[in-house]
């Protein structure tokens, strides 16, 4: 909203300040009251940890106990990208030749970032890490490559890119639906399969998050590529290919 009259503007500011102080005071009061009660579900998580298929309680909560939340987060990410794409008509970045430093550095760093992403994904089962961290590192590799003047080839930027972009959410839903079919509840993994299923979902999620973040940085909707593009001969990890 825009306020043109200065007197109204001042009164409005005071009102906002008053409201904010009230909310701040209320939050402080609530925090003081809450701190007395025993906090958290940590004990319950620890008690059930051996049925989740992973050793890291955070991953257990994110992918198993509250898998539904993570599923919706993936959907939010996809919707954000669709929103950016629907803006349309953004100016492309100019194709500037990178300096020798950036060029060399990006060639060294990009494979390393991809390895770090894979490590974070793998280690997430038992230690801090996981799909979102790994995906954002992968996305950072994509951003770095774009800054260094690298562009996704035409044969990758069409259907293949879109398949990668939805694979995280799609696989998540497919696994959930599959579990529903074999008689469980939605996303309720059988303990014997839980570890493998979570790793499968996280791998797809990592690729999707990385591709989504890099595509968000690019901004424009990449074209569907040349007509004769053959999606079968390409590999899904498009992030590690130099021109």
């Amino acid at each position: 909203m825009s306020i043109t009259n200065p007197a109204t503007g001042k009164a409005f500011r005071w009102l906002v300040m008053l409201l904010l102080s009230a909310i701040g005071g209320w939050l402080a009061y609530v925090m003081l009251v809450l701190s007395r009660s025993p906090a958290g579900l940590g004990d319950q998580v620890a008690a059930q940890l051996n049925t989740t298929g992973v050793g890291n309680p955070v991953t257990a909560v994110l992918l198993n106990f509250r898998g539904y939340d993570t599923l919706l987060e993936m959907a939010v990410l996809l919707i954000a990208l669709l929103g950016v794409w629907s803006l349309g008509g953004l100016a492309d970045y100019q194709d500037t030749a990178p300096g020798p430093t950036l060029d060399t550095l990006s060639r060294v760093l990009a494979p390393m970032l991809i390895m770090v992403a894979a490590y974070l994904l793998w280690v997430g089962a038992d230690a801090p890490g996981g799909a979102f961290q790994a995906g954002s590192v992968l996305g950072a590799a994509g951003v770095l490559l774009q800054l260094a003047g690298w562009r996704l080839g035409d044969c990758f930027s069409g259907m293949l890119l879109r398949v990668v972009l939805i694979s995280g959410l799609g696989l998540f839903i497919l696994v959930g639906a599959g579990l529903l079919l074999i008689g469980g509840a939605f996303l309720q993994y059988p303990p014997a399969l839980a570890g493998g299923l979570i790793l499968l979902i996280e791998t797809a999620a990592t690729l999707t998050i990385g591709a989504t973040l890099a595509a968000l940085f690019l901004g424009n909707r990449p074209g569907l590529g040349p007509k004769k593009a053959d999606p079968e001969k390409t590999e899904p990890d498009h992030g590690n290919q130099h021109p």
Binding site: N56, V58, P128, G130, Q133, S136, V137, G139, A140
Partner: peptide, 13 residues
């Protein structure tokens, strides 16, 4: 865990 996510997403991307 949150620190990793914050550093990678919050600060970086």
């Amino acid at each position: 865990d949150v620190a990793l996510a914050e550093a990678a997403i919050g600060a970086g991307l």
